[in-house]
């Protein structure tokens, strides 16, 4: 495993853990899209079906379980926790995320590496991950609430995307037959959408800063 891949995994892991820890500590999820968090939980659940069929490494297995556990915990907090659910911007988080799931599933049925259940689910999880940030982007544009979407979360997600792309480039040039078109293209789309998210975050952040200046 190269350093880019490892740093990508770590920043991805920390982005999820930071969010979970923050919700757990301040008992608030204001500014966080439940729709996006649910999509991420579905992404992990459908991608890691191979937990039951293939053993790759202890690292791999543990990371998968931690991703699954932490993303499901976030969803649980936002839906079920007495205090946390009160802070959820339900009326603003209106993106119809179910309409993302069906097109991704159809695309996965059409474009996959092999037409088997596992491969279709794997492709589906990649397509869904690419667009899962959209409800969060819409919520951020609506509420301009950047209190809970900390710089850390934005920074860690961005670092994860960047490191994974460097990892693919590195592996392409150092390994024989390392070609994953589906992963690369959906990864690029995800990074572009994330760039949009990044832009709005800093835009809101800058405007909030300005508002605090004396007139």
């Amino acid at each position: 495993m190269n350093m880019f891949r490892f740093l990508g995994d770590m920043t991805h892991l920390f982005s999820v853990l930071v969010l979970l820890l923050k919700i757990h500590t301040i008992k608030s999820c204001a500014g966080i899209s439940l729709k996006t968090q649910e999509l991420y939980a579905i992404v992990f659940a459908t991608r890691y079906l191979d937990l039951f069929t293939d053993y790759i490494s202890l690292y791999n297995t543990v990371m998968k379980l931690v991703y699954l556990g932490s993303s499901l915990s976030i969803v649980w907090y936002m839906r079920r926790h007495k205090l946390v659910r009160r802070s959820y911007d339900k009326d603003q988080d209106t993106f119809r995320h179910h309409f993302l799931i069906l097109p991704c599933l159809i695309l996965a049925l059409l474009i996959n590496e092999k037409f088997t259940f596992m491969e279709v689910m794997w492709a589906f999880s990649l397509y869904l991950e690419a667009v899962a940030i959209l409800p969060q982007l819409v919520l951020l544009q609506r509420t301009r609430n950047i209190d809970n979407l900390t710089g850390q979360y934005v920074f860690l997600l961005g670092a994860y995307r960047s490191f994974y792309i460097l990892n693919w480039i590195y592996r392409y040039f150092t390994e024989v037959h390392y070609v994953h078109w589906i992963t690369w293209i959906s990864g690029l789309v995800q990074t572009l959408l994330y760039g949009d998210f990044f832009y709005y975050y800093f835009h809101s952040w800058k405007n909030n800063e300005k508002l605090q200046l004396p007139a």
Partner: peptide, 10 residues
């Protein structure tokens, strides 16, 4: 398509 069957990335 891929010649790498093992999905070793997360």
């Amino acid at each position: 398509s891929s010649s790498n069957d093992v999905k070793d990335e997360l």
